[in-house]
């Protein structure tokens, strides 16, 4: 079964790069630049893994995570120097993030799913 990954960032370039680099036979990636659309879509198709940017238009990744009501592991992406969050993210990745590290996270989730 494919790993269903959601990626939310208001930078369209980052969304496209993420999708292009990590999409594979084992990984299906859906990207969002609009937090509301990500929240809405996650009600219909449950993601296995969620990457959320911290600084988003009119909101932040922490608030989005809190409103998602998801059991899927979530990782926060941030370009900030430091962030205070309430949601128990599985990890916080600082931009510019390491692609190898993300690949390792994805591989681990694939293993757990299968």
């Amino acid at each position: 079964m494919k790993l269903n990954v959601f990626f939310l960032d208001d930078e369209i370039d980052l969304c496209e790069q993420f999708q292009e680099f990590f999409s594979s036979e084992q990984i299906a990636i859906t990207v969002f630049t609009d937090p509301l659309k990500a929240i809405e879509e996650s009600k219909h198709q449950k993601p296995d893994l969620f990457f959320i940017d911290y600084r988003l238009p009119n909101t932040n990744g922490d608030l989005v995570a809190l409103s998602l009501n998801q059991t899927a592991p979530m990782y926060l992406l941030t370009g900030e120097i430091s962030v205070n969050v309430y949601y128990p993210f599985k990890g916080i990745l600082v931009k510019p993030y390491d692609f190898k590290q993300i690949q390792e996270i994805l591989d681990l989730e694939i293993q757990e799913k299968n």
């Binding site: 930078e11 980052l14 790069q17 600084r55 370009g79 900030e80 931009k95």
Partner: peptide
């Protein structure tokens, strides 16, 4: 910081690709 790290992440992504 966000405004510098975001384009840095894009540069990084482009190089990886």
């Amino acid at each position: 910081a966000h405004e510098i790290n975001n384009p840095l992440a894009i540069i990084n992504g482009a190089i990886e690709l």
